[in-house]
Write a protein that binds this DNA or RNA. Structure first.
Lengths: 197, 197
DNA sequence: TCGGGTGATTTAACACCGTTAACTGACCAC
DNA sequence: GTGGTCAGTTAACGGTGTTAAATCACCCGA
């Protein structure tokens, strides 16, 4: 009878083991090197077992992507609780995104289909991404209470600048050190939030 | 004896045919669908023939990428000849980049490894990309004659904002129409160049 | 104890991929 | 005719995502 209780748990362990392994391979060898068979080898199973937990590689990538957005959501929420000043809020949220991209680049890559990571499921269909967007829009609204359309535009601009800088920093990291890029990023985002006033 | 003259020409034709076919497939089915065999079928040759012209798929992609940067270079040069006002120059250059991304998305995608396009050759090692960067930096310098390091930073910022917005517009094009995004892009770039004063 | 069923896991296969080696066949010079 | 060169082919290798079929251990009723 204990099997009934142990099975679901070990099933959850296997599932998270697959995700963990995929991320580990991606971190070390890049997303292009991540294959179902390689994951299966690492968790000491045969390839079809992976399909017991994820219907396709695409769905596995989507899951990791959503994990990333959930993480971002929690961090953003933390910031919003911590600070009341809207300018400070938006700036700190920006810094969180930088830190996240820097510390877990493989997740950030799959979130935005960068660096060989490619998930065919459209990112904007992700519920978690929508929720993150909503949170940031609220933060902007508490700054400048304008109509929805204006907030949408500002959010689009914020994400363009933030993600654009992060993406370019990752692309050129061998030419321009990440510390240098971070300096520019902080300056850029500081200016962005300042100009919202 | 005419073979000596015809061969190189038809060779050049075959070469450009491969590039043309690769772009056509990418445009219709996405870069993920571009395979050597599919290209070979389209030009009615067998797969190994492609390797007579390109040592690897990576090098083929790199070639298309460089073609894109050369095109951008010529367009930028045209703008620089056309206008003398530095602010106008930089703004028009930005618009050219938007137009290019919009009209030849498959080339833009491979230039920045977006949307399933993946070329392992680092983009910053491309001579043509460096030249485009140099040109834009000159345009910025003619605007604000500062030290090299400052110009580098400004160029990095310009590319972050410009490419960041373009990339996000392409990513969300089913959610937010490209016309809407273009409006925001123009406004963003206009503000960027204005703030350089 | 036997047989049957069940569920987890594996092997085998399919159709594709990039890439390379070996082969074919046509032409041209001697 | 024979040898050589060159364009182009087929065949193969090891890899990919994915699925169907086979295996194998286990438990349960007869």
């Amino acid at each position: 009878m204990e099997t009934i209780e142990r099975k679901p748990r070990s099933r959850e362990q296997a599932r998270s083991g697959i995700i963990k392994t995929a991320k580990a391979i991606a971190r070390q060898e890049g997303w292009q090197a991540v294959s179902i068979r390689k994951i299966a080898d690492a968790i000491e199973y045969s390839a079809p077992i992976v399909y017991e937990y994820f219907d396709s590689k695409d769905i596995l990538l989507d899951e990791i992507r959503n994990e990333g957005f959930r993480h971002l959501y929690q961090e953003y929420e933390r910031i919003l609780k911590l600070y009341r000043d809207p300018e400070k809020r938006l700036y700190e949220i920006s810094l969180v995104q930088w830190e996240f991209a820097r510390q877990q680049p493989e997740i950030y890559q799959v979130m935005y289909n960068m660096d060989g990571a490619f998930c065919t499921i459209p990112v904007y269909q992700s519920e978690t991404m929508q929720e993150v967007s909503r949170l940031v829009r609220e933060a902007i609204f508490s700054f400048i209470p304008k109509a929805d359309e204006s907030i949408r535009r500002l959010h689009f601009q914020w994400l363009s600048v933030s993600h654009g800088t992060i993406m370019l920093a990752m692309l050129l990291k061998d030419e321009q050190s990440l510390d240098q890029s971070e300096q520019i990023y902080r300056e850029t985002m500081r200016r962005f939030v300042r100009e919202l006033r």
